[in-house]
C-alpha cells in the first residue's frame, strides 16, 4: 500500500490514533486491485495472441493482412450492444493492428481496425454489429504525422513495452470515453506496428461496480496521473483528477493494480468527509 504523501490539512484526528484500514477492508481492496489486474492481464494475453499471429504471418499484402487481422479480432469484439444494465459479453469495443509506415508495401500507414456496435456517433451513426474503421482511405501524410505522435503508438514505439492510454475521449472512432491498450509488434529489432484494443470506461464500470459497491467506503480506480476511471465517490466522478482542492491526496490510500498503470484509492479512516 502506498502511504499518503501529505497529511490532510483540515483533519482534527491525529494520524496515529486509528489504523488506516482494518484487515478485512485491506483484503477487499486487494481483491479489487487483483480483479482490475486480471481484467487487463486477460486483455493483454489476447493481444499477445494477435501479435504472435501477425509476426508468424510475416510481411503480407494489405488484403491478406486485413483478412488475418479481421479473423483475429472480430470474434473478440462485443457482438451486440449490451442490454440496459447488462454486462457486455466482451469488454473490447475496438481492436486491430496499426502498421508502421512501409510495413505494408507501398503504404505510409495501414489501419486494420474493427469497431464493435456503436450508438449515435457523429461519424459512424449507429451500427448494429462490427464494422471496419474507415480511416485507411483517408490516411495521408498529415495524418501519418499525427498518428505516430499519439500516445497509444508513440509510447510502445519508444519503450518497446505494452502501454495503457487513458481514460480519454476518443475523437477518431468511438467518440466516447475509452481506455486504449497497445502492444508493440516486433520483427527482429524493428517495430512493425502495434496491436491494440479499446475498452469503454462505461463497460469497465459495469464489471467493477459490484466489487466497489461491496466495500463499505468509497473506492476509486485511478490512473498514474490520478485520473478517475471508476468511482463510488460521487463528488469525484470519472474524468476528475485526484488530488483536487476538495480531495487532497492525504485523504486517500492507494494500492497498485498488478500489471497495470492503475491504482485503487480509498479514503483513509481519518480523512475528513
Amino acid at each position: 500500500m502506498t502511504p499518503p504523501e501529505t497529511t490532510p490539512p483540515e483533519t482534527s484526528v491525529p494520524e496515529t490514533s486509528v489504523p488506516d484500514l482494518t484487515d478485512a477492508a485491506q483484503l477487499s481492496l486487494a481483491s479489487c486491485a487483483a480483479e482490475v489486474g486480471e481484467i487487463f492481464a486477460r486483455a493483454f494475453r489476447t493481444l499477445e495472441g494477435w501479435r504472435d499471429a501477425i509476426v508468424a504471418a510475416g510481411p503480407v499484402r494489405a488484403a491478406e493482412l486485413d483478412a488475418l487481422v479481421e479473423a483475429l479480432v472480430v470474434p473478440a469484439l462485443r457482438a451486440e450492444p449490451p442490454a440496459p444494465g447488462g454486462v457486455p459479453e466482451s469488454l473490447l469495443i475496438g481492436a486491430g493492428f496499426i502498421a508502421a509506415p512501409q510495413y505494408v508495401t507501398g503504404r505510409d500507414a495501414h489501419f486494420a481496425w474493427w469497431l464493435g456496435p456503436l450508438a449515435g456517433t457523429p461519424l459512424l451513426g449507429t451500427t448494429s454489429g462490427p464494422s471496419r474503421l474507415d480511416l485507411a482511405a483517408r490516411v495521408n501524410t498529415e495524418f501519418l504525422r499525427d498518428f505516430r505522435e499519439l500516445e497509444w503508438y508513440q509510447v510502445p514505439e519508444s519503450t518497446n513495452h505494452t502501454h495503457v492510454t487513458g481514460p480519454y475521449v476518443d475523437h477518431l472512432c468511438t467518440f466516447d470515453y475509452v481506455i486504449t491498450l497497445t502492444m508493440p509488434v516486433r520483427v527482429d529489432r524493428d517495430m512493425v506496428g502495434v496491436v491494440g484494443a479499446d475498452v469503454f470506461v462505461k463497460s469497465l464500470e459495469q464489471v467493477l461496480l459490484p466489487h466497489f459497491l461491496a466495500l463499505a467506503s468509497p473506492v476509486l480506480l485511478i490512473n498514474e496521473a490520478g485520473r478517475v476511471v471508476v468511482s463510488t465517490e460521487p463528488s469525484l466522478p470519472a474524468g476528475d483528477i485526484l488530488p483536487n482542492p476538495r480531495h487532497p491526496l492525504g485523504d486517500y490510500d492507494r494500492m497498485p493494480c498488478p500489471g497495470t498503470p492503475f491504482l485503487i484509492a480509498t479514503r483513509t479512516r481519518n480523512a475528513t468527509i
Binding site: 456517433t121 457523429p122 481514460p167 480519454y168 475521449v169 475523437h171 470515453y177 485520473r227
Partner: peptide
C-alpha cells in the same frame, strides 16, 4: 478548440463541439 473539448474529458461536449 477540439483539443480543449477533448481535455474536458466529456464525450458529450466533444460530440457537440464537433457537430
Amino acid at each position: 478548440y477540439l483539443e480543449l473539448a477533448v481535455l474536458s474529458q466529456s464525450p458529450r461536449l466533444v460530440r457537440e463541439h464537433i457537430r
